[in-house]
Write a protein that binds this DNA or RNA. Structure first.
Lengths: 145, 145
DNA sequence: TGGAAAATATTGAATATTCAACGATTCCGG
DNA sequence: CCGGAATCGTTGAATATTCAATATTTTCCA
């Protein structure tokens, strides 16, 4: 008896997520191209835009990067004068990250590029579908933790 | 007048997708750990499991990898005797990839690990939510292309 | 309080990915 | 049918990421 064919890769949730993620990221990257900034740096800048200092660990968690990768990306951003390090006085193991003025200005430009992308998506995809998708993703993430 | 705070990163579709993708992939990777195979190799093996030869370009598209990355991953898989190359007789620029017997056996073990993960997700997340999410992702991907 | 254990961030080596350039083959207009 | 342009896959160099090990500081408990 022949084995029944297994479910195609395109029907797996993990694959659909990877595919959607890749496509959306690619589009966002294309918009960020003219600023020469990868999506991860936008996330970092955005988290830092509250003006409060954020530790490396906190940042790594928030921007979905592991510690060594973040350290090296921050090194580059420091070279570009987008962010700076301050040792935490209360816990000297920690380093607090802050956005520079240059970083803040860049953040605003990136934010508007990102918003325009979201608008573009919502337009072709529909507001309801977008909202539903976001809600489902939030709930999946919550369940997965 | 103070600038109104911009939308937090956690409310962006691109971020939610990245977060969900990372989490699901991490879980899948954990299950694949004992076979020592990254998720990408499972995708490759799965696509090749139809027994037909697939060109590198076709594969790269299907498994969401760009050409040079795929070439090098295939090199490793050839070393591990999971797949093999055959030059396409009809178009000698092309290389057709096939899964070896060893590759096929591994594919089946990986498939069942993947299915068990899907079952696990559907259990805590709900069948309806899972189906809705898949449908929305498919539709997003379609619109994005 | 002393010192082992935990938490935090960085480093260096190993590994993987990406970008640009290349070689081989096929396609196609004239 | 010839020759330039396009397609396909690979390679090497540059870049980025990851893993394991390290240094520093703090926590905690015996």
């Amino acid at each position: 008896m022949a084995r029944s064919p297994s479910k195609p890769i395109t029907e797996h949730l993990a694959y659909l997520l990877a595919q959607a993620n890749r496509e959306i990221n690619r589009q966002l990257d294309a918009r960020f191209r003219k600023e020469g900034v990868p999506v991860e740096q936008w996330r970092i800048l955005k988290v830092l835009s509250d003006g409060k200092g954020h530790s490396m660990g906190e940042l790594a968690e928030a921007v979905l990067l592991n510690h060594p990768t973040l350290t090296k990306m921050i090194d580059r951003m420091v070279s570009d004068s987008l962010v700076y390090r301050v040792q935490d006085a209360d816990d000297r193991r920690k380093v607090l990250m802050f956005s520079s003025d240059r970083g803040k200005a860049l953040t605003q430009r990136l934010n508007s590029l990102a918003l325009s992308q979201e608008a573009f998506i919502a337009e072709s995809y529909g507001n309801k579908a977008t909202a539903d998708l976001k809600r489902l993703l939030e709930s999946l993430i919550e369940k997965a933790n």
